[in-house]
């Protein structure tokens, strides 16, 4: 979940705050494919020392009850996210292009299969 907020926070804060000798395990974001035919969906995050352990932890934390058939894990620090502050310039170009939608076009009701 943290990628939604502060990508890289996990790694950054580790150096400054933790009392442990080596610091905090890096943060990973977890994506689960619920079943074949569906996209992987973000479900949350976890800490792990490396990619393989992140997968194992993801299995234990996020798929204890057949929640998925496939898992992706990715370091939160590797994710680049848009910010809500840039919402307008980022997404506005799509807003005024109504002609991209099928409802923009008037077709007589008696034309079949359209």
């Amino acid at each position: 979940m943290s990628a939604e907020t502060t990508p890289g926070t996990g790694a950054g804060s580790a150096e400054t705050r933790t009392p442990s000798v080596r610091g905090e395990w890096p943060l990973y974001e977890v994506f689960v494919r619920g079943k074949r035919g569906l996209n992987h969906v973000h479900v949350g995050s976890l800490h792990a020392p490396d990619d393989q352990m992140a997968l194992r932890h993801a299995r234990d934390v996020y798929t204890r009850r057949n929640e998925g058939v496939s898992l992706w894990v990715v370091r939160s620090s590797s994710i680049t996210a848009s910010s809500p502050d840039e919402k307008d310039p980022m997404f506005a170009p799509a807003g005024d292009k109504v002609y991209r939608h099928p409802t923009f076009y008037d077709i007589p009701d008696d034309v079949p299969h359209m």
Partner: peptide, 15 residues
């Protein structure tokens, strides 16, 4: 799950 939610606001797990 919940620690993960708290971390989205910048709190660190260890902290």
């Amino acid at each position: 799950y919940l620690y993960s939610a708290a971390e989205t606001l910048g709190a660190s797990r260890d902290e």
